[in-house]
Design a protein around this nucleic acid. Structure first.
Length: 673
DNA sequence: AAAAAAC
């Protein structure tokens, strides 16, 4: 029964069969049957650690320096020749050959960030030529057409070539010169537009120019990274880390990832891991007493972990990729100091600055020793950038450039959106119908199902599993190990149905998703945009189905507008709802602080520099009526975002040197890619 | 009334 996997157990057959274990150097260039084996480093331990009873310790998480980086002697990259490599490390990208192999494999299966960031893999670069790009701000550095127009440093250039990034994507063309010039940046660019590289290249390049921070001495007791990259989920941090490592290959730039969900095996050397596994085995064989013994040993090892963590931090880190909670914790403990930070990048910045996250971010950025704006470079990236968030973010920036990149393939209509009127009680039978229909197709395409709550995700997973459908759930209540296992299992097609909360809605690289089902629609239209953007990638068509129930009335209007923009057929009943609800729900019931106010600007990727709204009031395109509700002008009366005179005219080439590329204003149709 | 993010 396929749904045996839903418990995240892997099973003897499923789990072990995929384990590549050690790959000898001479075979590392060989194509990998399943890209995810290599890319995500199935370790021989996962089968063991995923055994029942281990779960609560979150074996899959990383405390610091995921994978290679946390091995006691670090990676081979820094001249250690990989002598400390163990099986786990080898199964990840321990050599660049592996990295390249992964890259190719990922491209083949339409990796998201990879694909768009890379020059190969059947990416339709012609489509990029039409993408409207707009940069506003003072003295905007001109874009480049090629990577070699900018001196990024030989090591990095070599890696760019190794990655087969032949040509920069639109966001890279603009963002890299801006960032290399040391300017602050607020970039509104789609997931999959290559933004990871857009902020990594300049950071790595500058670090190389200014000299590495991490010397071999290790006399420092506090890690002082010179760059910090923050992201809202652990998986995303991990993904960025993996990316960045490829770019920094052999440059000596040290990149460490830090996020929660404490792990044991990830941080121990191979011998410790084996010892740990053996103990676990013995413990299980000898029953209850053994298990108790195992638990004490586990705690012992946990203590060791902290020591290892310390050691690695002290060894030096140039770029720290982290989630906010863990970083704040490490700063509190005095393990990390931000006083040497020269570059700060926030990925998915709008989420990082929304209600739940903003205080943490503000604390990290403003109260934990980081140099103030002006003395550091700050770059914010997101696919959606509501005005309210822009306003918040401007606290972190100085004289920044706002960059807005339109969508790739928006005109091709890669994603078809279907909205169905399904009441909550009918949702289950309805999704069964949908999924069985797909099953009949015999395809192994991936289906991503979004629910509103964690409980809902679990319940749906259970229901689908019990109905014979291979589903697995991912959400924040699962321990990190289960989350990662779910993701792997989904990507590998073992459980081609992933039931997820919004933990999986942003930034994550989940290739081959052919269908996104919004079992529960999100409250926020931006979330919807991010969610459906998981499908329809790199030339493949995608389907996004949403179950619209009476609960979703507030979403009707923005949803209709979004669908119209992307040339989707709007069901008549939905239009009716949109009309009748237009003024009723203005901003009410929204969780996000920017809630109803965001309507002044355009949404779903077509955001504009809010500074330009300041004096002008609504400028065509999207009227302030988007959300019904507030007139956006009401926000601008505060006058509290100090010193921002309204910069040059928003429309590109005029005025103070904004750039405009492409054929139309940036509020182009289409949505995420 | 949610999700995420530290131990």
């Amino acid at each position: 029964m396929s749904w045996d996997f839903t418990g995240g157990r892997g099973g003897a057959g499923g789990g072990r069969a995929r384990l590549p274990s050690y790959v000898p150097p001479h075979l590392r260039n060989a194509p990998v049957a399943n890209p995810y084996n290599a890319a995500y480093g199935y370790s021989p331990y996962s089968a063991v650690y995923n055994a029942p009873g281990y779960g609560q310790y979150g074996g899959g998480g990383y405390v610091l320096g995921g994978q290679q980086d946390f091995a006691p002697r670090g990676r081979g990259r820094r001249g250690r020749g990989g002598q400390r490599r163990n099986e786990y490390e080898s199964s990840s990208s321990s050599s660049f050959a592996d990295a390249i192999a992964e890259k190719f494999n990922e491209l083949e299966v339409l990796g998201e960030e990879e694909a768009a960031g890379g020059g190969g893999g059947g990416i339709n670069f012609e489509a990029y030529d039409d993408i409207p790009v707009k940069a506003t701000g003072n003295e905007v550095p001109p874009p480049v057409e090629r990577f070699d127009e900018i001196d990024l440093g030989e090591g990095l250039m070599q890696n760019i070539r190794r990655c087969k990034y032949s040509k920069p994507t639109p966001v890279q063309k603009h963002a890299i010169p801006i960032a290399v010039a040391g300017r602050d940046l607020m970039a509104c660019a789609q997931t999959g537009s290559g933004k990871t590289a857009a902020f990594c290249f300049p950071i790595i390049s500058t670090i190389l120019k200014n000299g590495l921070n991490s010397g071999p001495g290790g006399t420092r007791t506090v890690a002082q990274p010179s760059a910090l990259i923050l992201s809202p989920t652990r998986e995303l941090s991990c993904q960025i880390h993996e990316e960045a490592k490829k770019f920094a290959f052999k440059t000596g730039v040290r990149i460490v990832v830090a996020y929660g969900g404490a792990s044991i095996q990830q941080q121990l050397g191979s011998s410790c891991k084996w010892a740990f596994c053996s103990i676990w085995l013995v413990a299980h064989l000898s029953g209850d007493v053994g298990l108790r013994l195992f638990n004490s040993v586990r705690f012992f090892f946990y203590g060791i972990c902290c020591v290892v963590q310390l050691y690695n931090l002290e060894k030096g880190v140039d770029i720290l990729v982290a989630t906010p909670g863990r970083l704040a914790d490490m700063i509190d403990r005095g393990r990390v100091s931000l006083k040497m930070i020269k570059h700060l990048a926030l990925d998915e910045a709008d989420r990082m600055l929304d209600m739940g996250f903003e205080p943490q971010i503000r604390k990290i950025v403003q109260q934990m020793g980081m140099p103030p704006p002006g003395q550091r470079q700050t770059m914010l990236f997101s696919a959606t950038f509501p005005d309210e968030i822009q306003r918040l973010a401007s606290d972190f920036l100085k004289d920044y450039i706002f960059l807005s990149v339109g969508r790739v393939g928006s005109s091709t209509g890669l994603i078809s959106q279907k909205i169905e009127l399904v009441q909550d009680m009918d949702k289950r039978s309805h999704i069964m119908k949908l999924l069985h229909g797909q099953k009949a197709n015999g395809k192994r395409d991936l289906t991503l199902v979004f629910t509103e709550t964690k409980k809902g995700a679990d319940a749906l997973e259970y229901y689908l599993s019990m109905s014979g459908l291979p589903a697995i759930a991912i959400h924040g209540d699962k321990v990190q190990m289960e989350r990662e296992r779910a993701l792997r299992s989904f990507k590998a097609g073992v459980t081609p149905i992933l039931v997820a909360t919004d933990v999986a809605s942003r930034g994550l690289d989940i290739p081959n998703v052919s269908h996104v089902i919004n079992f529960d629609l999100p409250k926020d239209i931006d979330d919807y945009v991010h969610r459906i953007g998981r499908t329809g990638r790199a030339g493949k068509s995608g389907l996004a189905t949403a179950f619209f129930s009476d609960q979703n009335m507030p979403l009707a209007k923005p949803l209709v507008e979004l669908m119209k923009e992307s040339n989707q057929e709007v069901p008549p009943w939905l239009s009716e709802y949109a009309k009748s609800s237009s003024n009723t729900y203005s901003g009410g019931g929204r969780y996000r602080r920017y809630g109803g106010g965001g309507g002044g600007g355009s949404r779903h990727g077509g955001y504009d520099d809010y500074r330009n709204d300041y004096s002008g009031g609504g400028y065509g395109g999207y009227g302030g009526a988007s959300y019904g509700g507030y007139d956006s002008g009401s926000y601008y009366g505060d006058n509290d975002y100090g010193g921002y005179a309204a910069p040059p005219a928003w429309s590109g080439l005029g005025g103070g040197g904004g750039y405009e590329l492409g054929t139309e204003a940036v509020v182009a149709s289409g949505w995420d890619m």
